[in-house]
Design a protein around this nucleic acid. Sequence first.
DNA 1: TTGTATGCGTTATCAC
DNA 2: GTGATAACGCATACAA
Lengths: 338, 338
Amino acid sequence: MEAVTIKDIARALNLSTSTVSRALRGSYEINPETKRLVMEYAERMNYRPNPIALSLKENRSRAIGVIVPQIANHFFSQAINGIEAIAYNRGYHVIIFQSHESYEREVVTVQQSVSRKVDGLLISLSSQTTNVAHLKDLEEKGFPLVQFDRVSSELDIPKIIADNYQGAFEATEHLLQTGRRRIAHLTIPPWMSITQERLAGYKDALAKYNVPFDEDLVRYCGFGDDAVGPMVDELLALTPAPDAFFTASDRLALGCLAALRKRNVAIPETVSLIGFTNLNVADLLSPSMSTVVQPAMEIGQLAAERLIELIERKQKAAPPNTVKIPARLVVRESSIRE
Amino acid sequence: MEAVTIKDIARALNLSTSTVSRALRGSYEINPETKRLVMEYAERMNYRPNPIALSLKENRSRAIGVIVPQIANHFFSQAINGIEAIAYNRGYHVIIFQSHESYEREVVTVQQSVSRKVDGLLISLSSQTTNVAHLKDLEEKGFPLVQFDRVSSELDIPKIIADNYQGAFEATEHLLQTGRRRIAHLTIPPWMSITQERLAGYKDALAKYNVPFDEDLVRYCGFGDDAVGPMVDELLALTPAPDAFFTASDRLALGCLAALRKRNVAIPETVSLIGFTNLNVADLLSPSMSTVVQPAMEIGQLAAERLIELIERKQKAAPPNTVKIPARLVVRESSIRE
DNA sequence: TTGTATGCGTTATCAC
DNA sequence: GTGATAACGCATACAA
């Protein structure tokens, strides 16, 4: 509570605050004896510079803001983990904000975090965000800003993402190689970057194997509604019925799994299941559900590194604006049908 | 970047900074006309008070620190969710720190967060922490401090916890009521508060049903080692073998589940499984694994409320120092054997 | 080598 | 009703 200040030290040692200040920060031209004296006393009194005073003076807070849709989500909590690891190493604090998948809250939160004087912002868009004017604003002001995972191409700033295209391609290819032909794709809202990237990978894999793309096999599921069960039903009712499900998130994979179990649809005998998911219990959940694992922690780390570079203006050879990190396909079945 | 300050407004309107300041904060005795002028201009220029300057002046940061062992853990990310909900409502920021289950890092982190001038601290102890001198220190200084979940009784400060005793009692009782008699208890390090509370509940339930307590059925598993499999093996090798497993965490429940599956031990035919866990996929994982669900979000909310009360010294009728919130038993099996 | 003065943005105190 | 000044803790340009 009674934090000791430079002024206290100065008074106690009969020096001026500037001398103490200089001694403390090991300034070049200062009497070694004075320096020792100050250092010792500071140590003894457990002096700690007041970061708020520093912030005011230097006009920077040494804090970065992170805006994610939800903390309580495997991918994001892992990403935050990565962000923290880097940030704390570089002397930055991490202040976490949640948009709760709401566009309005995202806008408010962006404003809040900026007026809270974070030095930079790391953001993954809410699933409702289609307009990025609130960020365009910051971009134009040159405010340090990095996007990760769910990004908008309308912003010309660094983006760190998983290689969703390639992950989806490999997932689909795996299903095709094991003989599946009617692959349903259960995914999230169509305007999201990750949705589009994955859909493209899915389509291209189908094309490579000369399987026609069937619009009917693709279903979009919002974050609010728990409509996964009915959607699976609809899909199963198609003729011909799907022989595989490729889902775009933890939630969808779980919902799909639950629906299939409820209807006694055998996996992988009747349908194969593969999903983008970061659940570490996937193999316990369903030993035959393959997964595409996103490199959450690496994404967080890279994003944080990139942001700190931006903040500290070390734009040496200006690294590429979009970094894609491979998503890892984990195969847990081998029921080749041919 | 070019944030507008009170000084800018004063200059533009030919007023003094003090007048502007007063007008802005709706001070009583000020010319309504002047006030309107200032307000309008401020609005138009999108003026936002600099929180850092305020912090320096008021000697408070409007930020609270949260120290948890791990973010990427269901219980803690849900708790943080609760903390955030309250904190942001009350105008506080949340700065998250991880101790990574290390005592040393916890000590460092506590110091860091305090010298970063958080207004108060919410902490859940690392699994390695047995000495709480670093917190005793703060307690003695009267620094606002609240413990949650993993607490130390050596600290005479508010504690918000789940009712681990009752949860464990009910879990054990449920197993006993379904005919189980050799109930293994797989748990975390013995010195932790939650371990002791749960063990007590387990023992008392056994006593109520006149089942002798067998030390051999209790195994302690640290957080580093992945020794769950071997432990389950050892337990299964006992004579008589256990007919039920009661585990103390997500990780142990999963490890136990995996080990039992690997050995083709049927659940619930051969052994029952019940665990303290906050996994939302428990029923998918094992339709017959009952769980004791901890009220993570409520714990976070209450802890944050309590801390903010402390910070703002609204110690009205000084609420009780320890708050226990019921843990909810979710039964997913009904294989009564008698 | 050390001290004095100034400023970061804001508000409280005291004048006028 | 409004303005000048000091202070929060620190760093630094400028003097000495």
